[in-house]
Write a protein that binds this DNA or RNA. Structure first.
Lengths: 260, 260
DNA sequence: GCGACACTTCCACGAACATGGAACCGATCG
DNA sequence: CGATCGGTTCCATGTTCGTGGAAGTGTCGC
């Protein structure tokens, strides 16, 4: 099917512009404008709308050919279909700033999500990734085969638990984890009451790095909440690190968190 | 008094896009996209709407700062406030879907537009693309680094295609461009009187290739018109290449243009 | 001054369309 | 298997917004 380039047609500029003319769609497109592929839930948070609203607009944008979708498990990752979309965004942005510009104060909800959130029953986001890395650095976890960081590896799927990973408990696991509030008897690899593995890892969508999951991840989050290091933000998946928590992570793990 | 401070930076993009998202406004802007100043009645005819409708939309566009008005007797001449508006139109045109032909007149006019038109202050359409290519072939422009396709590569920043391009002046730039009527002292890269870059390129919506824009693009169009090589088609954006122009382009650039 | 003209404003009708609640599908986890 | 979660679809609501008719303001020509 050769695209019959009808040489007399008119271009429907208005229809194309209309796709950018809604706040929700504009924010979604802006969030994608660097070329990343993001799941619908993240885009909903980024645009500060309900999942239904986001889904509706994503369907519209996809139908119009501005976005492409890729399914991965129960997630759907959206991405700009062509760089031309980003060109339009940039061109429009230069026309827009007649209003007070505040490019930094992004949707706070999205920022919070990126910063720290729960993933099922364990920590994710920048905080989750950094704690995981700190556990490795401190010897509570050990990565096999010369792997020293938590970066994404080929074949890892976003936002789903990795069935195979190179990590094991490290030489100082008991000492450190107990000091963080996890009961020592929870560190056995085979808990009789559950087949759930002690160590599991997810690939974090916002950081493109691994964060700790599995039974240990759950215990750790529970311990942090128990100790008041972390509090849930009302009605959301985002969590907040308290001052106590910041101090605790610093003394116990040598972890210095830059900001929020 | 307008200053309704919209609560969101990205909202401005939606608002800006909204100005292009109406058929009437889009047609009006397209009619003005070559930088001319046209009276309201002409724009109403161009958009095929009643005078009231045109007036309403013109007021909206003017209020938003996209257009400027100048009164002259009982007429009001509208004009694009800035070339950035034309940039947005060109960018949108590339992702705009084709629209079925409405009439023979429309069809012939659309064909003329594809053939040769002005884009604010420089040449576009097939003629603009071919001249740009001829300038490269003749060594007046040089394309660097061999990356000639516009396809996206993984990890590329999508948003920087307008401002960054691989072209520079070529070894025969001065000789050729002067022979085409551009003053030699206009070829310095940094004109003190203007921050506008000498070389800029647009992706042509009708040809899917680059055409020359920027200060040089403007000088070149001015020189062609001055020399009588190109004339504007009465009341439209389309331009016509005269026989003199065809001959000039052949002898100076070795450019053989097939047809109209 | 009178009429014609260019253009605008007021107003009310009508059509898109974005949104949220509820229900539904499929995948993952325990 | 049951629970939950990510995501979508359906539907009813409410709002925005473009438009045309009628009327108003200023300009030009006789």
């Amino acid at each position: 099917m050769t695209a019959t380039i009808a040489p007399g047609g008119d271009l429907d500029i208005a229809a194309a512009a209309g796709l950018f003319a809604d706040p929700t769609r504009a924010r979604v497109l802006m969030a994608l404008s660097d070329g990343r592929a993001l799941p619908a839930s993240v885009l909903a948070a980024e645009a500060a709308v309900t999942p239904q609203a986001a889904s509706t607009q994503l369907a519209r944008l996809t139908g119009a050919g501005l976005l492409t979708v890729e399914r991965s498990g129960r997630h759907r990752y959206y991405q700009l279909a062509t760089g031309q979309v980003a060109v339009v965004l940039e061109a429009l942005a230069q026309l827009a700033p007649m209003q007070p510009v505040r490019s930094l104060r992004h949707s706070t909800r999205a920022t919070q999500l990126r910063s720290a959130r729960t993933c099922y029953d364990h920590l994710a986001g920048r905080l989750g990734v950094q704690i995981t890395q700190a556990l490795i650095d401190a010897g509570a976890l050990a990565a096999g085969d010369g792997i020293t960081d938590t970066r994404r590896r080929p074949g890892d799927r976003l936002s789903s638990q990795l069935t195979e990973h190179p990590y094991t408990l490290g030489p100082h696991a008991t000492q450190i984890l107990v000091s963080l509030g996890v009961a020592a008897d929870r560190l056995t690899d085979n808990d009789r009451s559950s087949q759930r593995p002690l160590l599991r890892f997810c690939l974090d969508w916002s950081e493109q790095q691994h964060h700790l999951a599995g039974r240990l991840g759950a215990h750790l989050l529970a311990a942090f909440i128990e100790a008041g290091w972390i509090t849930r933000i009302q009605g959301q998946r985002a969590v907040r690190l308290t001052d106590t928590g910041r101090h605790g992570l610093h003394t116990r793990l040598g972890l210095d968190l830059l900001d929020t």
